[in-house]
Nucleic acid binder design. Structure first.
Lengths: 160, 160
DNA sequence: TGGAAATAAGACAGTTTTTGTCCGCTTTTG
DNA sequence: CAAAAGCGGACAAAAACTGTCTTATTTCCA
């Protein structure tokens, strides 16, 4: 139940790009040094981000990476799923055929609900939000300072 | 970003106990057969649950495990944390000293928020809820009910 | 009282995931 | 052309996950 280092590095790396301003091309080496992330690892992560279209890569001498969208249009869910793959609390939520409880799994509903909440938080927080929160204290007690509106309960349930 | 097999097995195993009625002593072997969970693995998991006080073990001939509380008083958060340890999206949320961003980590707030949501869902769902078919314990916040998402939802879950 | 039944505890092993590293390749600029 | 940068894949160490096995220890009851 963790966000991996790779996912964390990805967000931090993009945050670094976002701080330079939109369109700016930044080298892996700079991001690596600035955020203290192993360069080769970060390179791999940015390849994923490039494949996902979040970032544009330019090769050659004056190459590097740049954001393809405004920081306000890049959610942390975009980033994390680009790197770690789709968030899935259980296999059955990704591939229903894998669930052994064909007659109605008692847990799928629970896990689905938890998963929805997490995706909700991540999808409501963009790079721009994180930039604005930069002055905020390191370890908030609650969810203070984040754009998580408590009114946002996803209450559309579906028949199936 | 997954609930482990062990955690899932734990909930299923306790659900099995809950179905037998409170106070009933059930053997690992029965639960194992009924839920199709490897016996030795399940034994380990129940040891964790016993250490956490969720379940009482009796050794010897007529031994087995029994719930120490009513199913309505055992949350899935209790169970999962007993087995997997505390839910922590990032190391810094468990041990703030580990966070390298001393001047204010841009991510701790985000992760803390997501983590709170997950723990909220799990802490609002008890064994009794799962027995009833997945509805959650009442909560003033009236937060998200069960599955929102797409085709992954099993057939029996309906709007609550 | 002894044997059978049941959990307790810990060592061990196979697999997968995570976290990187490395190297040869291609692309781009000057 | 040479240097600089990312691309892609192979590789590897470490950790986590998923079990299995063995040896206690406890308890019941014939």
């Amino acid at each position: 139940m963790q966000v991996t280092r790779a996912g964390e590095y990805g967000v931090l790396g993009l945050l670094c790009l976002a701080r330079r301003g939109p369109g700016q091309v930044v080298m892996i080496d700079d991001v690596s040094r600035e955020e203290k992330i192993p360069k080769s690892f970060l390179a791999k992560i940015f390849q994923s981000l490039a494949r996902a279209g979040i970032v544009k890569s330019s090769r050659g001498v004056r190459g590097g990476f740049s954001l393809t969208r405004q920081p306000g249009d890049i959610t942390t869910l975009d980033i994390i799923e680009a790197i770690e793959g789709p968030i899935a609390f259980q296999r059955c939520l990704q591939a229903p055929t894998d669930c052994p409880h064909t007659g109605g799994c008692p847990l799928c509903g629970l896990f689905s609900s938890a998963q929805t909440q997490v995706k909700d938080v991540f999808s409501r927080t963009t790079l721009a939000d994180l930039l604005r929160g930069g002055s905020q204290r390191g370890h908030p007690k609650g969810a203070a300072g984040l754009p998580v509106s408590d009114a946002a309960a996803p209450t559309e349930f579906q028949r199936v």
